[in-house]
């Protein structure tokens, strides 16, 4: 039952449907069922929003500290420095996202060129 285990044109699609679509949209539909009953501004809403935000924040630090693929070849110190510089620039520029992203990317690129 692996991706290449069954030699039929439809098998990869079925594999993606079950292991990909079902495994992902299951959570989205569960979110609709709960969210339908929540009101903005209620205590329960506030709590779920805090959980959702902390989750996304954990995704952010994972992408910076433990990346996969090509980014994994850069040094962890360089990535942290680039992210911190970007965030500082973002705050100094009156919370402009473009500035933060631009400075971070420039710092990362400079670090890569210099061989960090």
């Amino acid at each position: 039952m692996t991706f290449s285990g069954i030699d039929a044109w439809w098998w990869p699609y079925l594999f993606i449907l079950i292991a990909g679509w079902f495994a992902t949209d299951f959570w989205r539909y569960a979110g609709v069922l709960v969210g339908r009953r929540l009101n903005e501004g209620s205590q329960a809403f506030e709590f779920v929003r805090a959980v959702a935000t902390a989750l996304v924040a954990a995704v952010i630090s994972r992408l910076i500290l433990f990346p996969t693929g090509a980014l994994a070849e850069t040094g962890v110190v360089l990535r942290i420095v680039a992210a911190v510089l970007g965030f500082a620039a973002f705050k100094l520029a009156g919370q402009r996202v473009v500035v933060g992203v631009g400075v971070s990317l420039a710092a990362l690129a400079a670090g890569m060129v210099l061989g960090f």
Partner: peptide, 22 residues
Amino acid sequence: TMIAVALSSVRLMPMVTTLVPE
């Protein structure tokens, strides 16, 4: 594979839960 993908997608539930009321 399904279990690994499902674990990586749990985060979507609270995100959907907070966006739906809005």
